[in-house]
Nucleic acid binder design. Structure first.
Length: 215
DNA sequence: TAGGCCATCTGGTCCT
DNA sequence: AGGACCAGATGGCCTA
C-alpha cells in the first residue's frame, strides 16, 4: 500500500546528517556547544580548535617539508593520538546526542499518556513499529469501507514490500508477533504493563482495530 | 543487591 | 587523512 500522503514525507529518514525531525537541526548545532546532559563524567571537552578549514593547505605543507617527514617523537605521536581520540570522542558523543534527539522526536509523535514514564529506546522503536503497523491497518480498513471493495485481502504482499521492518516481521500478518525480543509490537507492549496507550488495544488485537483507538 | 537502562570511551572498519 | 558508523567495555543511576 502506498504510504499515506500526509504521513510519508515526515517519515523520510535519510542517511547521514539530514534532519527529518523537528528540532533535530538545532540539536545538532547545540549538542556540542551545550554541555553534555550526562550527569556522569564530562571529560575535558573541547578538541575543536585545531583542524579547521585548512586541511588541504597543511597537507601540502607537510608534503613539501619532505613527504613523510622525519619520524615524530614518541611524545608528539602520543599527543597527536590523544588529540585525535578526543576529537573522535566528541564526534561520537555528538552523534549519539543526535540519535537521541531523533528518538525523542519519535517519542513525541507516539501516543502516550502524559504521566507515562518515558519510553526507553527499545520500547520507543518497538512501539513506533507497532503504531505504524496499526495505522496502516486503519487506513486499509478505512479504504475498504469507503469504496466497498472486496473483503479485506491479505495485506501481506503490500506490507512486506514496504520498507518498514523486515519482511519477517510482517510476513505472518494478522499478527505482527515475531521473534521474541525483536521488534515485535505485541511482545513489546506486553512486556511492560505500564504501556497502556490509546493505540495499545488495536495493536494487541489487530483484528479488532478501530480508528477510534487512535483518537 | 541484582538487573536494566543509559552515556561515554574506545578501537576497528568503511567511505570520501 | 579524517569522518561516520558500529559494537564492545565500563561505570553511574535507578528501581524492584
Amino acid at each position: 500500500m502506498a504510504p499515506h500522503p500526509s504521513c510519508a514525507p515526515a517519515v523520510q529518514v535519510t542517511h547521514k546528517n539530514e534532519q527529518p525531525f523537528p528540532g533535530a537541526a538545532e540539536d545538532k548545532v547545540t549538542c556540542v556547544a551545550s554541555a553534555p546532559p550526562s550527569p556522569t563524567r564530562v571529560p575535558g571537552n573541547s578538541a575543536e580548535a585545531e583542524g579547521g578549514g585548512h586541511r588541504g593547505a597543511s597537507r601540502k605543507l607537510r608534503a613539501r617539508r619532505g613527504g613523510r617527514s622525519r619520524p615524530k617523537s614518541e611524545l608528539a605521536l602520543s599527543k597527536q593520538r590523544r588529540s585525535r581520540r578526543k576529537k573522535a570522542n566528541d564526534r561520537e558523543r555528538n552523534r549519539m546526542h543526535n540519535l537521541n534527539s531523533a528518538l525523542d522526536a519519535l517519542r513525541g509523535v507516539l501516543p502516550t499518556f502524559p504521566d507515562d514514564a518515558k519510553l526507553t529506546k527499545i520500547e520507543t522503536l518497538r512501539f513506533a513499529h507497532n503504531y505504524i503497523w496499526a495505522l496502516t491497518q486503519t487506513l486499509r480498513i478505512a479504504d475498504h469501507s469507503l469504496y466497498g471493495l472486496e473483503p479485506l485481502a491479505p495485506p501481506c504482499e503490500e506490507l512486506s514490500s514496504q520498507d518498514v521492518g523486515s519482511p519477517g516481521d510482517w510476513g505472518s500478518l494478522n499478527s505482527p508477533v515475531s521473534q521474541a525480543g525483536s521488534l515485535s509490537p505485541v511482545a513489546s507492549l506486553e512486556e511492560r504493563p505500564r504501556l497502556q496507550t490509546p493505540a495499545s488495544p488495536a495493536c494487541l488485537h489487530p483484528g479488532a482495530l478501530a480508528f477510534s483507538d487512535f483518537l
